[in-house]
Write a protein that binds this DNA or RNA. Structure first.
Lengths: 345, 345
DNA sequence: GCAGGTGGTGAGAGCGCTCTCGCGCCCGCG
DNA sequence: CGCGGGCGCGAGAGCGCTCTCACCACCTGC
């Protein structure tokens, strides 16, 4: 672990190029209004000295940081057990990188961390925040909103209904759910059950709503509540089999849940899809491809969600490519989903 | 997206508390050498004004940033397809948070990004870096080392043999592999095969070495090369069955590979574990629990690896709890693994 | 009772950058 | 040939903080 050598300053570059600090600064920041001869000379000096601007000094005066916080509130390990989070992060990273912004990651667990995150964001260390608010009762979004930091949410926050200034990006959970259920209906299934996700999350609520859109007059006993986990899926599937032995299809709120349901179905001697067809949600790989049978599911473009979140935020900050998809700063952007047919339905 | 209000400065707090800037600064940074009466007065003023120090201004003079870069070089999506990365990140995040450091995430893909990362690190925006170098020929580690930023590597870098100043944290891949193979041997298996990982990664090489430690005089045809993917596992397993039909056990380089192997074995009508016992590596959940049969595998404490990396780096920077596990700044730290017995072996 | 600490405080000089301003130069026009 | 107006550049004032240093009590010891 070596110490970093003393880095050359603007002053040094200026001296070497035989110009003033101001001119070097202009060149470094685009070089408008400087004669080509000088631009060239300064560039050369920068090169030779290996000059890199001191971001701290720059931020001090510009009050920008070219840094965005990504806040992932996840008391449970769920987010970590699937690639969802990582993919979104990657989309975000790509977009931020393309616009020369840094990504400051804040992972929170438990209430204690909320204050810390609030303080950090209020502290003006970053220009904006991307926040994943997964739970309806999560105080974090409110807290962040209050910190006065420009924010884009990943997933519809629970309270967005009453606030038109909330910007978020979400998948079309409801539409995707409708597609899944319609697909099952199209297969001739009539006793289509739904295993819900954790209903304190908007995604679970929206998927349930989608199910209801299609199955308006369905037997309410065909709905079993679970929590997005395989174990929850198993439990719910057992319930379902006990309650409605004639069930011939299941739409599970996500692939993990579906995998649990599949296992119970197999144990119960029900053939999939012959006896019971199963559809999941997420298209979580490799899981969805490797269940037995491979899972028909609803795919969402997670990486694109991340990218879009970043783009929206940057645009709100007057960064990013101007007018690209002009005026698209609607408060909520919903990305389409697609049904991926495999063997389970 | 509201604009942030003008924040109070040290000066403002000083005025309100009736002291000098210097005194406020002292209080904000611990309050040593200031009378309790004044400390109290300053604290009150800070509270009332909602003062938060301007990190940019502070960094400008202290030359510290209390920020650590986490560099994840991953051209392939592999890292994103499993929770490995996320868990490690979480461990890192916990440790950094505990010491009030920020986590700047740099994801790279492809050669172009290397220069960008190098520039960023050399730019002195962060105090140190945690780098995941997964490939033997990755130029990134060298590049980073040259940038003169204190660095801890995740996973043994390929070239660490010749450089004693390289600090890294790794799992005991070799020892874990030995345990796995010994376990299979203990089951009375004699034709134990190994499906390797991508051999341009040290973890794959080390696991292969562990296999060889136990199976010194094994039939070389029992070794099939794969790449950590399920598809690779399938391919290798087919090869193996063709080459050595009498194979009675398989140690796969990771769980993904093992899952592919399991599928091929099932198709081939071999019962697991009766005909062929299978052991994986990683204990990747939920996959490992949900294969058919559930996978016996080698677990590594991934979160702890992350935490340890952060701790080592912070300690190297003279931060972190002093003397905690004194003098433990060895160049390489290897974490133990444990065999998790499930049904497949 | 005075030299020599000692512990608490404030004044002030930067850290490296941006940005406003004004000055000089050269152009075009009258 | 003189004068107004750009345009290109440099001087200098900060941004908000830390940290050294000098200063001013007050306290100890001879």
């Amino acid at each position: 672990m070596t110490d970093t050598a003393p880095r050359p300053t603007l002053e040094a570059v200026a001296a070497r190029a035989g110009v003033s600090r101001a001119t070097v600064s202009r060149v470094v920041n685009g070089g408008d209004g400087v004669r080509d001869i000088l631009v060239e000379r300064v560039r050369k000096a920068v090169e030779e000295l290996g000059y890199v601007p001191n971001q701290a000094a720059r931020s001090l005066v510009t009050r920008r940081h070219d840094a965005i916080a990504v806040v992932v509130a996840e008391p449970e390990t769920r987010v970590f057990a699937d690639p969802f989070f990582a993919l979104q992060l990657r989309g975000i990273s790509k977009e931020l990188t393309a616009h020369d912004n840094q990504l400051v990651l804040l992972l929170t667990e438990g209430r204690d961390d909320h204050a810390r995150v609030g303080r950090y964001l209020a502290g003006g260390h970053v220009d904006g925040a991307l926040v994943f608010s997964l739970h309806l009762d999560d105080p974090l979004p409110e807290l962040i909103q209050r910190a006065g930091v420009p924010t884009v949410f990943g997933g519809r926050p629970g309270w967005s209904g009453d606030r038109r200034d909330v910007v978020y990006v979400d998948s079309d959970n409801r539409g995707g759910a409708r597609d899944a259920v319609r697909h099952l209906a199209g297969l001739g299934r009539t006793r289509i059950a739904h295993i819900t996700g954790a209903l304190d999350q908007t995604s679970a609520v929206d998927r349930l709503d989608g199910y209801r859109d299609v199955m308006a007059d369905a037997d309410p006993r065909l709905i079993a509540e679970a929590d997005f986990t395989p174990a929850g899926g198993e439990r719910a599937m057992r319930e379902l089999l006990g309650r409605c032995p004639d069930v011939d299809a299941v739409f599970a709120a996500n692939d993990l849940t579906a995998s649990g349901a599949l296992r119970v179905l197999r144990e119960a001697g029900r053939r999939v899809p012959d006896d019971v067809a199963v559809v999941g949600f997420d298209d979580m790989l490799p899981l969805a491809e490797q269940t037995d049978p491979p899972l028909t599911t609803v795919r969402q473009d997670i990486e694109e969600m991340g990218r879009l979140m970043a783009r929206l935020l940057l645009r709100g900050l007057d960064r990013g490519t101007p007018r690209e998809g002009a005026g698209d700063t609607r408060s909520g952007v919903v990305l389409p989903t697609t049904l991926v047919r495999r063997a389970s339905a």
